[in-house]
Simulated assay, not measured.
Amino acid sequence: MLFAPPGCLSGDGQLREVFEERIRGQEPAGQDLWFVSSDQFCEQLRDALTQRGLRPTGPFELLISSEPHLLVWLQVRFGGELLEHVVLPWGFHDLAASLPPAAAPVGLEVR
């Protein structure tokens, strides 16, 4: 699990691009990476972090994967704190059903 304050991982839309590239490359469309937004961060996930000795005080966004090398690469690219061997609550897949947010539109003006 990789966790960070809201926007640290997903703020500029690049994380969504990573997800879309992985989805395009998977046959069949299996999933080995999940994103939990700060809005989806719930008490059960907070408890999972607390069991690891952390005291999460605010909302977080999470990346969850069974592939440790993938999480290390994403930590190098986006930041955040990496935790290994976290016991996740049953049904966390339902919390992580959405893609990270897309990049905000840029106001361009043609002259």
Rank of each mutant, 00 (worst) to 15 (best):
Q14F: 10
E20S: 05
S10G: 01
L45P: 00
V18E: 10
G25K: 15
G11E: 06
D39Q: 15
G13Y: 11
L15T: 00
L33P: 14
D12V: 04
R52I: 03
E43H: 08
G11V: 04
C42V: 04
E17F: 07
Q51L: 15
R22A: 13
G13S: 02
F19V: 00
C42W: 05
A29E: 06
L9P: 09
D39C: 04
R24H: 10
G53Q: 05
P28G: 11
G25Y: 12
V18M: 04
G13T: 01
F60Y: 14
E43M: 12
D39T: 03
Q51F: 14
L49Q: 10
E43R: 11
Q14N: 10
G7M: 08
S38D: 11
G25N: 13
P28I: 10
S38K: 01
C42G: 05
S38H: 09
R46F: 06
F19P: 00
F19T: 00
L15D: 00
R16T: 06
E27H: 11
F41S: 00
R46L: 12
E17Q: 09
C42Q: 05
L15G: 00
L62Q: 03
Q40H: 11
W34V: 04
I64Q: 05
G53S: 11
L33E: 06
D12N: 08
E43C: 07
L9H: 02
G53C: 11
S37Q: 05
G13A: 02
P59C: 04
T57W: 15
F60A: 02
S37R: 03
L49I: 03
S10W: 04
Q26C: 14
A29C: 09
F19I: 01
Q44P: 01
A48G: 06
E43V: 09
E43N: 09
L33I: 09
I64S: 02
G11A: 03
R16G: 09
G53N: 06
C8Q: 10
E17Y: 10
V18W: 13
P59Q: 11
C8H: 07
D47H: 14
Q26V: 12
I64H: 06
D32K: 05
D32F: 15
Q44K: 08
Q40N: 11
E27D: 15
F41W: 07
L62D: 05
I23D: 13
S38Y: 06
Q31P: 08
E43K: 10
P59S: 14
